[in-house]
Nucleic acid binder design. Structure first.
Lengths: 197, 197
DNA sequence: CTTTTGACCAATTTTTAAAAATAGTCAAAT
DNA sequence: ATTTGACTATTTTTAAAAATTGGTCAAAAG
């Protein structure tokens, strides 16, 4: 029952966060949405960060289902990488504001650094699985899976950051997102080709 | 004689820009360094931007000599790409503050966008030459040189942006720069392998 | 014992307006 | 063709007041 209420709160907070962003959402607003007092909200989540964290973990769990399904059904490495990019795009479009804020937020705080490091490592983990699979079934040459996965993830993320936005700090629109995705897929193809047997 | 004076100004401005950054350098300071009046400085350069532009072009010319030499003496594609990365690093360390400012500056202004677009295209041009050479001498498969070069440059730049800095917005130190360079070289190797015959 | 709340605080952010600094101009002097 | 001092318009800094917000707590309600 406590967990049920927590889920309720997570749901309400997620709505606000993903529509207006983290910074522009106050704890009072979340509480008001559920007709709770702010003090009551703090009874379930000791601070704003832990609420955000809970949301992030929920999204991660949600996406894990999709990712694992792909991991089980797709056999070729490039196909898998491309599916991962598509999934990421899906989630990006769905949780736009949230993810955007997450990237730019008070990154100097230790807990934020840890959270984004965790998310990075999780992505690296997925890519590692894919690469290992590729090596095992003889599609890829043997190499240091971890460092190469890290390089791949950094490359893909970097490609997303550096994009010829019309106005660099403006929120990116659908076209922009699609152009980025295309570049990432191209890069993925070349990358895989570069570590093929 | 006009050009001589212009060069003098460029030299003085370059010193200040590369030590304190563009934003923290005033036109008066540059003028004072040369014992000119500010009005006189404006006689040679109509505004701050054109002074910065002149400096950028001078650095570009300077680096062109180094780049062309490499282009003539190194024959294998990967060797060339790695040399380019090393050259970039050299110039980055030399003109640290200047380049840093250039990236983050008032990018919303049209003229700044054009300048950085120009620099991007110049880099793409160099990589294109290298790729063409690789295709011509049979080292690489045939592909769309321009778009692939753009992808490569975007990848390399992205790798530089996305780096696990201890404090994200802090100025990056030597170690960080070296780690980035290593990643870029690794990525370059895989990339080239991916478009090899 | 668990859940809920109003009242409260400290710290941060926003606002505002005045002061200072800076990019850029121009008529006159050299 | 160069150079300058004096001038402006626009930003940037500064500092203080006002408002907002994250977070606490003792006490009430269930």
């Amino acid at each position: 029952m406590v967990d049920d209420k927590k889920d309720l709160i997570i749901g309400a907070a997620l709505k606000r966060f993903s529509r207006f962003g983290i910074a522009k959402t106050t704890m009072s607003e979340v509480a008001d949405d559920l007709k709770l007092s702010k003090a009551n909200l703090y009874y379930y989540f000791p601070d704003k960060f832990s609420l955000i964290e809970a949301i992030v973990y929920q999204i991660i769990e949600e996406s894990d289902v999709t990712i694992n399904h792909a991991l089980e059904t797709i056999t070729d490495t490039l196909g898998l990488l491309i599916r991962m990019l598509d999934i990421k795009k899906e989630y990006f479009e769905k949780y736009y504001m949230l993810i955007l804020n997450l990237q730019e937020m008070n990154i100097s705080d230790e807990k934020w650094v840890q959270l984004s490091e965790k998310m990075f490592q999780r992505e690296v983990g997925t890519i590692s699985k894919i690469f290992k699979k590729g090596i095992d079934n003889g599609e890829l040459v043997t190499f240091d899976v971890t460092s190469t996965s890290e390089l791949y993830v950094a490359m893909v993320r970097g490609l997303a950051m550096f994009c010829d936005r019309a106005t660099p700090h403006a929120l990116l629109d659908r076209d922009e997102v699609n152009r980025i995705l295309e570049k990432q897929k191209q890069a993925a193809a070349i990358f895989i080709n570069g570590i093929k047997k």
